[in-house]
Design a protein around this nucleic acid. Structure first.
Lengths: 238, 238
DNA sequence: CCTATAGTTAACACAGGTTTGACGCTCAGG
DNA sequence: CCTGAGCGTCAAACCTGTGTTAACTATAGG
């Protein structure tokens, strides 16, 4: 066991994504790969159990409602076989309704559909952070004198605390988690907004504007427009 | 043994969780891990004894009613073998009165099912605090001029004692034990309310409201709403 | 068994956040 | 220097989450 832990500490984290909708598994697994994870997918409960057995994932993202063996069944199966692997449920219903069958049934966290990819990613990191020591980071992102604390949701520029709304916070976190990477408006829309967002408008520009007013009003400017490509956040070269 | 004690004084506390329901062991052990413990689980009495022998835990959370060798049997076995390891019993409600006599036979505390996770966690800390010198903290949580004593259940703001109900106290303790961490309403519901709580209402907001009236009516405000995310308690930045 | 206290539910009002659409500005290329 | 596509900004409309009150139900203590 200790040998396995040691070996694994230097390899990529492996995440199994289980959902009967291919759109969802694709969306989630490509986001996870973009984030440096290895991913495996399954589109039903039975196949999920097989994939767990053969690839021993570090975490499972598991849809609750699936035809045949559903998420609850998969989880019970795993737990009674002694598996301790962390599980995040995807639940379609109102979270409160499913709660008894959800978290309390042995999952480590759950995300309500439709979710934003960044939200799910944040949960994945949070769960891994608390369940394995190797992933323990403090959850504070810093670029120049801009700080964002994922735990307390505090954001400060030049030492001054700034209040951000939920969407502003997610957007800034996405930018900061990708420092020096240009993110297109559609990437941003796909990651920060819930995946069923229909509106096709200038909402990204609008929120970039909000962020600039709130956290980028002082020099040096950190948020940059790359005309025709998207936005980047970065500290100036020194 | 003394060598083991010395070594152990700098390692994580190890807790063995024993229950025949996988949901309960997972619920409890993941909460304990989140709290910095190492956990081992067993789903029956015989296996529990084996795990004690092989991993020498610092504390055992032990379900009384299990098929085969039950909790009382496990405890008797341990005590007659000379083990002094602290034990917290999990008992069903109707059996509570009957079991108290049994508890005197060697358990250190007991928690009635269904329990809230925070309640169990509090007992674990309390037992460790009084049974091992290394865990001796006074059990007083302080944020700015807000004080909460886990032993006496006294709460005071700005030096003035405040009376809280059981639920209010647990909620405040949960917040304070997680200063500067945003806790979602579902996290709060899952930790502070008993695990079989099915209700779906705005009960968390309601209790936050109670707390605000009782302990946060003066400046500076310590309990903050993070719209769309949850609540945080924190002292203002200096 | 009755009363006081605590816990829960439901209804509702409102503040704050999100989205929309219109409009003006800017930059790069012709 | 003109032009159009892309970007930034504004205010109104819409919507959701949150706080609050009050009534109801369970529980514990006398």
């Amino acid at each position: 066991m200790s040998a396995a832990v040691v070996t694994r500490s230097h390899t990529k984290r492996r995440v199994l994504v289980v959902d009967d909708e291919e759109n969802v598994t694709h969306l989630v697994s490509s986001a996870l790969r973009f984030d440096g994870f290895e991913t495996i997918t399954a589109d039903n409960g039975t196949s999920a159990l097989a994939k767990v057995a053969e690839s021993d994932p570090d975490l499972i993202v598991l849809d609750v409602m699936m035809p045949g063996l559903d998420g609850l069944g998969v989880l019970q199966n795993l737990r009674s076989a002694g598996s301790q692997v962390p599980v995040i449920f995807l639940t379609a219903r109102d979270a409160a309704t499913d709660r008894i069958g959800g978290l309390r049934a042995g999952a480590d966290d759950y995300v309500v559909k439709p979710f934003s990819v960044e939200e799910l990613l944040a949960r994945v990191h949070a769960v891994l952070r608390r369940s394995s020591p190797e992933d323990a980071r403090d959850g504070v992102l810093t670029i120049a004198d801009l700080e964002l604390d994922e735990n307390s949701h505090e954001v400060a520029r030049a030492g001054v605390e700034v209040h951000l709304t939920a969407t502003e916070f997610e957007l800034l976190r996405f930018l900061m988690r990708n420092e020096r990477v240009v993110l297109s408006k559609s990437q941003i829309l796909d990651r920060v907004w819930k995946y069923d967002f229909a509106g096709q408008s200038n909402i990204v520009e609008l929120y970039i504007g909000y962020l600039r007013k709130k956290v980028d009003a002082v020099e040096p400017k950190l948020i940059h427009t790359i005309r025709g490509a998207g936005y980047v956040i970065k500290a100036p070269r020194r």
